[in-house]
């Protein structure tokens, strides 16, 4: 087990390295650089030249990459090219915001989708099952911003919740939860269907197996069959799907951030790509990659643990 974790972590570091090369290369390939993007319509050849000189962008790409890599290896993410702010400062607040929202949404979405999924498996093909399926599948099928606007229309215009998730640094938790409720709810609606369907499918799959039939024959009630007998064996696929959705909540929520004006990492990444602020893009990409690598690792460890045959291997 420990060996597996170590191995996976080493692979993860290699993945991060490859991603940083890829991202750097991709930004180099994009037309224009930070000097042209920031000066925009006002750019003239001389000012672009001076801008590049000041930022050292006139040096060859591989040297700039090695410089950056050297810094990161020592834990220094460098400065934003655009406004010289230290990236660590720039990202810290954003990362905290992103994690807060992801956690908030996960705390609502994970229990909700597990419960809905289990109930749907229990009462499959019933009216309840169909209603849950239709509702969750419709909410995942609409684009996120549409779901967000619908929620704003019903819940914000009536004054129940604020339409923009303006979080000020000093706000207390209750206020923060209130202000970010709509984005969290939007994300919940977006991720619930996936997890709910997987839970339902995994359990239904198992309900057809002989050991469940055995349990049923000896007179175990339906709730106990699902919770005690089917669910433990269905955990592996469910955990994997939850991990993927958590990673999505961290990395893929830029649209929700924009609609609710929530200063998270996604917005930072999009802004920085559009201005070719390569150091910030690199840092944000590394964080996203870390989220995927770590969540997948955790999912694998947990699903291994959920299977006694893998834990007690002979």
């Amino acid at each position: 087990m420990l060996q597996m974790i170590a191995q996976r972590l080493a692979l993860g570091v290699l993945t991060l390295f490859l991603i940083s090369v890829l991202i750097f290369g991709a930004i180099e390939l994009l037309p224009g650089d930070i000097a042209e993007e920031i000066l925009g319509q006002s750019a003239t050849p001389e000012t672009v030249e001076a801008f590049r000189r000041e930022l050292g962008l006139d040096r060859p790409a591989h040297l700039r990459y090695l410089d950056w890599l050297g810094g990161v290896a020592q834990g220094d993410l460098g400065h934003s090219l655009a406004n010289r702010r230290p990236i660590a400062d720039l990202i810290a607040g954003r990362l905290a915001n992103t994690l807060f929202l992801a956690l908030y949404a996960a705390v609502i979405a994970v229990p909700l989708s597990l419960a809905l999924g289990i109930l749907a498996a229990l009462y499959r093909n019933s009216l309840y099952d169909r209603a849950v399926n239709v509702f969750t599948l419709s909410s995942i099928s609409f684009p996120e911003f549409f779901v967000a606007y619908i929620l704003i229309f019903f819940l914000a215009q009536s004054g129940l919740f604020p339409s923009i998730a303006r979080v000020t640094p000093g706000a207390d938790l209750a206020d923060k939860l209130h202000r970010t409720f709509l984005p969290a709810l939007t994300l919940t609606l977006v991720v619930t269907a996936h997890m709910m369907r997987m839970t339902r499918a995994a359990i239904i799959n198992l309900l057809a197996s002989p050991y469940i039939e055995m349990a049923r024959l000896k007179g175990v009630g339906p709730a106990r069959i699902v919770l005690r007998h089917a669910l433990p064996n269905a955990l592996a696929p469910i955990i994997n799907v939850i991990a993927l959705n958590l990673a999505y909540l961290i990395t893929g929520v830029v649209v929700v951030e924009v609609v609710f004006v929530y200063p998270g990492l996604g917005q930072l990444m999009v802004d920085s790509v559009s201005k070719r602020d390569v150091t910030v893009v690199q840092a944000a990409a590394l964080i996203f990659a870390c989220a995927y690598v770590l969540l997948n690792l955790v999912a694998d460890v947990l699903s291994t643990l959920s299977n006694p045959r893998l834990v007690h291997r002979r």
């Binding site: 930070i34 920031i38 000066l39 925009g40 319509q41 006002s42 934003s80 655009a82 406004n83 010289r84 720039l90 917005q267 930072l268 802004d271 920085s272 201005k275 602020d277 910030v280």
Partner: peptide, 11 residues
């Protein structure tokens, strides 16, 4: 996010 206090870049 890339805005700054620098008057050379206000756009």
């Amino acid at each position: 996010t890339s805005d700054s206090y620098d008057p050379a870049t206000w756009d």
